[in-house]
Amino acid sequence: MTQFTSFEALSAFYREQIEAPGFDAAFAEQGNLAQLSIHDEPMATDMPDPQSARAAMEMIIGTVFDIFRATRMEEFARDIVWGIVNSFHVTAQRIEKREDDAGKKLGDLARSFDPSEIYAVELEETQRISQTLMDCREAMEAMRDYAGEIYRVETGRPFSTIKGSRVSSGLTASQIDARDFLAARSAQRREEHAPTGPVVIFSGGTDWHDHELLWQALDETHGRIPNMILATTAQHKGCDQIAHAWAAARGVKTVRFTLNRALGKRAGFIRNEQLLNLKPVHALVCEGSGIQSNLLTRVREANVPYHAFAIRHQRVAA
């Protein structure tokens, strides 16, 4: 990517590459008064202007990439920007925890109705706090997701957290940690953590260069299964990274099954078992290690339709 001569040109480039249909809605105000805690007074404050927020993400993230572009420090821009995007993610998680606490308190109040004025005031206050925190979380997630999309456009890789899930109200593809996904399924928690839909599993080795071959196969699968959830083996390079980039570009929810290192040499095989327990409707397996060979064997034994790719199937790198 060439260096841009003005912020306007950089902003225009990003807006051509990134669709953000839900961005403005994330900044909608649900009440006339806002309150973030019982220690604060209700205030008639506004949410940030969504277009200003979008422009700020473009300026903050784009400027870092543009400063280092075509210099000997270019490779470090990705690390710096990842930290910026992750700061929005961490802040959104903290808001969500406070929102959950307020929601629990609201539920307790609803179950212990009291006709007194004190009860009515506390109920109204808790509702206002819960709503304000939800508004703030949705806006913070929208900024995180838009900044993450700029990161993807610049690097070709989706923004991924070190651990845990990155969920939102749907601006971009959610990336869900397997532990959150399985726990949410058991407890019937929020849809963001336990999305419904047919599961397609994906796994492959780290030594892979032909991304077009995998994107074509994933596009074909997505065409047949438009509401698919992609479950991957969560490696940060090679086939899985290509699949994560595809999912981010197509808005497909991704569940990442990382290795449980405490299980030692059995970790990869137990992960394969977890993937098959999801009752996948399709599998894409690329040649890698014995882990991928084991997964392909299990897929065949379970009569799951699949695509299998050997390293020799790759086209010669340019």
Results as ranks from 00 to 15, higher is better:
161 T>Q: 14
142 A>L: 03
166 R>L: 14
121 V>S: 08
163 K>Y: 10
171 L>P: 00
171 L>V: 07
188 Q>N: 13
164 G>S: 11
173 A>M: 04
160 S>M: 13
185 R>F: 09
129 I>K: 01
171 L>W: 01
156 G>L: 08
171 L>S: 00
167 V>P: 01
125 E>G: 07
168 S>H: 03
118 I>K: 14
172 T>G: 15
142 A>C: 04
149 E>D: 05
136 C>M: 11
157 R>V: 03
125 E>D: 09
124 E>D: 15
177 D>L: 07
181 F>V: 04
124 E>L: 12
185 R>S: 11
127 Q>S: 14
188 Q>H: 10
188 Q>K: 12
119 Y>P: 00
183 A>F: 05
136 C>V: 14
172 T>M: 12
163 K>G: 10
150 I>H: 04
185 R>V: 06
134 M>K: 14
134 M>G: 12
164 G>L: 08
163 K>A: 15
118 I>D: 15
127 Q>V: 07
147 A>H: 03
161 T>H: 11
125 E>T: 15
156 G>E: 02
139 A>H: 04
135 D>I: 04
154 E>R: 11
167 V>D: 00
159 F>V: 00
185 R>M: 10
134 M>T: 14
139 A>C: 02
148 G>Q: 00
132 T>I: 10
141 E>I: 09
185 R>I: 05
135 D>Y: 03
145 D>H: 08
137 R>V: 05
169 S>E: 08
179 R>W: 14
144 R>K: 13
146 Y>W: 11
136 C>F: 13
170 G>I: 06
141 E>P: 01
169 S>R: 10
134 M>N: 12
125 E>F: 09
149 E>I: 08
151 Y>Q: 05
162 I>R: 15
143 M>S: 06
136 C>H: 09
143 M>P: 00
128 R>S: 09
145 D>V: 06
161 T>P: 14
144 R>I: 11
135 D>V: 03
179 R>N: 13
143 M>F: 00
148 G>T: 01
178 A>C: 12
152 R>T: 02
138 E>P: 00
176 I>D: 04
132 T>Q: 01
123 L>F: 13
124 E>I: 08
163 K>Q: 14
121 V>T: 12
184 A>M: 06
148 G>V: 00
151 Y>V: 03
126 T>R: 05
159 F>K: 00
164 G>C: 10
164 G>E: 05
144 R>Y: 08
177 D>W: 12
153 V>D: 07
150 I>G: 04
127 Q>P: 02
150 I>N: 03
162 I>L: 12
121 V>D: 10
